[in-house]
């Protein structure tokens, strides 16, 4: 009896580790074929490239942890990338009209909070599924942003924003330090506070949380606001990365965010969406994109590879659930 109980998880753990093994295998393959891949310079590039995705993944992880990881009925926020683009759009447009950075930042913050609150209300009060809500909000927010920016590219050269990309503190880029700080704060809030544990309980089992007197709907609302805030911060990193706001960034960001977060779930030992998993997923996805680029693989193939990776990883994840 005991032996059976121990043997079961072990088999599923082996199957469960395959996604990570596949990923590492792909990276090893890349580094063997692209000699310049494993250099400090290049790894820094990978990290810098992944920063916007890491940020939105932190937000998405919060929403999924609060709402449960069933994609259709549980928690998901597809509107975060749109919020990020809105944050970038408002800031860029106002900067180009010579407002101070502070007032730009405040205006963008307000707009992003409105998005988060609307998401929260639609999900907890109206009872729409998060998937439907945030998909529709994605469209609406992108539409509003296109009105604000008139769908054109706006250059930004404000030194503070460029600093996110250029400045280094003790040879580590400022952007990486800031995002690392945000991830650590997020991790602390999620795993070392009462709020975070209750949030996870809400997503893990709604009934269990409610029986323990946890206000599930309030926590779900919080998670959408947190997600909007990560989108808000991400907006500035988008501005820094692209030296301005340009239309159309949101689609790719959304796909990478979903890919990275659910890859992260397949990596995590508890097999659920976690903050570390999402961050790791985001970095690995960026590493693979850059890796294939430095190998000289046609850029059109990367989408195919990413799509296949989701299939492989999610399929293994599903199989390991069954083995259990």
């Amino acid at each position: 009896m005991q032996a059976d109980v121990r043997g079961g998880p072990r088999l599923s753990e082996i199957v469960g580790f395959l996604p990570l093994v596949i990923f590492v295998g792909v990276l090893v393959y890349i580094s063997l074929n692209a000699p310049n891949f494993v250099t400090v310079r290049n790894l820094e590039l990978v990290l810098m490239q992944s920063l916007p995705v890491v940020l939105v993944c932190v937000g998405l992880a919060a929403v999924v942890m609060a709402g449960g990881d069933d994609v259709v009925s549980g928690g998901i926020d597809l509107s975060i990338p749109a919020t990020a683009v809105l944050s970038a759009g408002i800031t860029a447009q106002m900067l180009s009209l010579d407002y101070s950075l502070l007032s730009c930042a405040l205006a963008a913050l307000l707009a992003c909070l409105v998005v988060g609150v609307i998401n929260a209300l639609l999900v907890t009060r109206v009872g729409m599924t998060p998937l439907l809500t945030t998909l529709a909000m994605f469209v609406a927010v992108v539409g509003v942003n296109n009105v604000i920016t008139s769908s054109r590219r706006i250059n930004v050269d404000h030194p503070w924003i460029i600093a996110l990309r250029g400045t280094e503190i003790g040879s580590i880029p400022l952007g990486i330090i800031l995002v690392a700080a945000i991830v650590i704060i997020g991790y602390f809030a999620m795993h070392h506070t009462r709020w975070g544990l209750n949030l996870q309980a809400a997503g893990g089992s709604k009934d269990a949380a409610e029986i323990s007197g946890i206000g599930v709907n309030l926590l779900i609302s919080h998670s959408f606001v947190v997600a909007a805030l990560t989108g808000y911060v991400c907006g500035f990193f988008l501005l820094a990365r692209g030296s301005g706001s340009s239309p159309g960034v949101q689609d790719n960001l959304m796909l990478e965010m979903v890919l990275a977060t659910f890859l992260g779930a397949a990596f995590s030992p508890r097999r659920v969406v976690t903050m570390w998993g999402a961050v790791l997923g985001a970095v690995l996805v960026a590493a693979i994109s850059i890796g294939f680029k430095s190998m000289g693989v046609n850029v059109f193939w990367t989408g195919l590879i990413k799509g296949s990776l989701i299939v492989v990883v999610v399929a293994f994840s599903a199989i390991s659930q069954r083995v259990r």
């Binding site: 544990l197 209750n198 996870q200 309980a201 893990g204 009934d207 946890i214 508890r270 097999r271 659920v272």
Partner: peptide
């Protein structure tokens, strides 16, 4: 049982009363 499968024993015992 109303327990969250991926929580630890401690987290489950103190759920909602951390």
């Amino acid at each position: 049982l109303h327990l969250v499968p991926h929580f630890t024993v401690t987290e489950s015992v103190f759920m909602g009363q951390e």
